[in-house]
């Protein structure tokens, strides 16, 4: 414990014995390291990979996640539905409707590739990890169960200071941006971002949870810049 003593030179038997007593006594007076897990919830690191949550509304059944999954633990079934034209003489539109979205957590290796691959922000990491089962088959999480994890998904971390606005926000902002209307004071709820960069208008991204838009969300501690950039790109 005392870093003063150099290793290699034996301190002699009596100082050694005293040293042992002092070390144990000092450890006894400090708080112990035991995590009282079932009684006290652990403090997980940010972006913990507990379980994958599905936001069904965002899913277009594009199957990218299922194809990218290294152990093929995602099963997706969908059918097409025709949406009649809203205007007379317009064209009917088709859209995919998700029937089945199942992740087999008995197979999943928590690589997160599906979440990275999803172009529509339908999959999210949730830090919840307490879904052990007595039966292996119960580790198949269907659409509803995956949806059920959504409330446990933490808000995305705040952007770095003076970072570029997220691509989605920038795209949404571009046509609406006036020539000289600096609206820097609008987003007072998100500290930590200095500079006069135009913020996304409120309510713009609220219907669809947009990954990486730090503006609408509570601010989380700033992470390592490199990891941050990877996630934003």
């Amino acid at each position: 414990m005392s870093g003063a003593r150099k290793r290699g030179r034996a301190p002699g038997i009596l100082p050694g014995l005293v040293h042992g007593l002092v070390t144990t006594a000092r450890t006894a007076l400090r708080p112990s390291h035991t995590a009282e897990y079932p009684d006290v919830a652990p403090t997980l690191p940010p972006r913990s990979r507990g379980v994958i949550a599905l936001l069904e509304e965002n899913c277009t059944s594009c199957m990218l996640c299922a194809r990218e999954c290294p152990d093929w633990c995602i099963v997706i079934e969908s059918h097409k539905e025709t949406i009649p034209a809203t205007t007379p003489g317009g064209r009917d539109r088709q859209r995919n409707v998700l029937d089945t979205f199942t992740i087999d957590f008995g197979l999943c290796m928590y690589c997160g590739i599906c979440i990275e691959a999803c172009p529509f922000d339908a999959l999210f990491w949730s830090p919840q990890f307490e879904y052990a089962e007595y039966d292996l088959r119960d580790l198949l999480h269907d659409k509803e169960r995956l949806r059920g994890w959504m409330p446990t998904v933490p808000p995305p971390p705040a952007l770095d200071e003076r970072s570029a606005p997220p691509a989605e926000v920038a795209a949404a902002n571009r046509p609406a941006r006036p020539a000289a209307g600096a609206a820097a004071g609008a987003g007072a709820g998100a500290p930590g971002r200095a500079g006069g960069a135009a913020r996304p208008a409120r309510g713009d991204g609220a219907e669809r949870p947009v990954r990486g838009s730090g503006a609408e969300r509570p601010v989380r501690p700033v992470r390592a810049p490199r990891a941050r950039r990877e996630e934003d790109s």
Binding site: T24, A25, T27, A28, R30, S32, H33, T34, E36
Partner: peptide, 13 residues
Amino acid sequence: KLMAHMQGRLGPM
């Protein structure tokens, strides 16, 4: 208890 705390543990709880 004492041994546990001297080893940074909690002992029986």
